[in-house]
Design a binder for these strands. Structure first.
Lengths: 219, 219
DNA sequence: ATTCTTTTGACAGTTGCTCTCAATTCATGG
DNA sequence: CCATGAATTGAGAGCAACTGTCAAAAGAAT
């Protein structure tokens, strides 16, 4: 999930000697492909950047690129925050209202992604720009959010004692996801100037109170 | 908009002699391409159907197919109900709560599309199946819904006296759209057995009252 | 060192999609 | 009815994303 945050660089380079050489190499090529992609897109734009160029810049074969990422959009979009999202969400008390939990989780997630701990601010800005400008990327990002929606469905189902496939549960969760995604798009379209955290907070307020009520500025 | 309904065959074949020969031919080839596509997909599946085959079956050149539809998904997905949607919506009294207006509009739209007036039930079923089974189609359909969301934004903005680009307006509308889309998906995934009209009604109920309240069965 | 497994690269092929250009078809005014 | 001009089409070349196969190379296990 998260639209704005992704690509966790959890592995401090020489940090986990438990992993075999193979695993470490995989992580390295994965990062190499992404780095190369980011650089090339920054230099010449998304469409002008071909898989071949990416492969050459990352010093792998084109086949390898496709082995690591099913589509070109995925190189940019792929989002490893879903597990964190679920963990944070399940960490909240089960009797807390779902929107309240989301307020906390989203605030935390935004803070973390803005802090530059998981990825550089430039990478974040670039992804935001691409989300706003390149239809294919935007579309892929929406798909990605629907996976997050499924996680939300499971949690919501548990809390309300329903099935995860329950119509009401699914509808509610996709409504929430749609709203949050739109807040992110708003942020991206406005040159990422505003405070994304505040936008998502306002998004949840709207979900809770509807449109009539004016922007509540209280915490 | 509408996910379930599309492809209005408004033109009774020899109905509008006001249009020039050119216009009429355009409409005819457009329909021919779609008919051919539907038939081929029904016979051999979506992926196995190529643009070349479609062109041959519709008796036009491949270039012409692309001239009429920017992508292959669009042949299936393209949805001409947005104008109707906007018309119906604006026909409602301006002081009516937005969700109430939507209830009416969606009910009407579902009825019309189920009645088989605009397209055959088979075409509708096929589109539903593809939406559930083919990722590319589902994705394109989501994009299409976001256009509907913009219409909704404009109307919502007028009614509440805000800008169409207002964050709250956009978030609210995309929440609504996400919820409705999910109801349609639910319907499609469950073999289109249930009552789509009821599903969308329940979707709006959830948006209004949240998840806690149990399925209200009263009108 | 040897086998065995995983990962990789080379390569060929398919398909969606774009672009250009010449030929055809239709609309229009004389 | 015909000539002129505009729109529509078809043919074809070309590009890039993606798939599949297969043999070579690299890491793991004995």
């Amino acid at each position: 999930m998260m639209t704005m945050a992704a690509t966790a660089h959890r592995s401090t380079p020489a940090a986990e000697p438990r992993l075999g050489l193979r695993e470490r190499k995989k992580i390295k090529t994965r990062m190499a492909i992404r780095k190369a992609t980011y650089r090339l897109i920054r230099e010449q734009g998304y469409d002008a950047t071909t898989i071949e160029q990416i492969a050459e810049a990352a010093e792998v074969s084109p086949s390898t690129v496709f082995r690591y990422f099913p589509t070109k959009e995925d190189i940019v979009v792929t989002d490893e925050y879903d597990p964190l999202f679920e963990e944070l969400l399940r960490g909240r008390p089960a009797d807390e209202p779902l929107l309240e939990s989301l307020r906390y989780v989203l605030r935390t997630a935004v803070e973390q992604s803005m802090s530059g701990e998981y990825e550089t601010p430039e990478e974040m800005r670039l992804r935001g720009r691409l989300m706003a400008e390149v239809p294919a990327v935007r579309s892929r990002m929406t798909e990605s959010m629907s996976v997050t929606g499924q996680i939300l469905c499971r949690v919501a189902a548990e809390r309300t004692g329903r099935e995860p496939d329950d119509l009401e549960v699914r509808v509610y969760c996709m409504g929430v996801v749609g709203a949050i995604l739109e807040a992110s798009r708003y942020w991206a379209e406005h040159d990422q100037q505003g405070d994304l955290g505040e936008y998502t907070r306002r998004a949840l307020d709207v979900l809770e109170h509807g449109l009539e009520r004016r922007n509540s500025e209280a915490p």
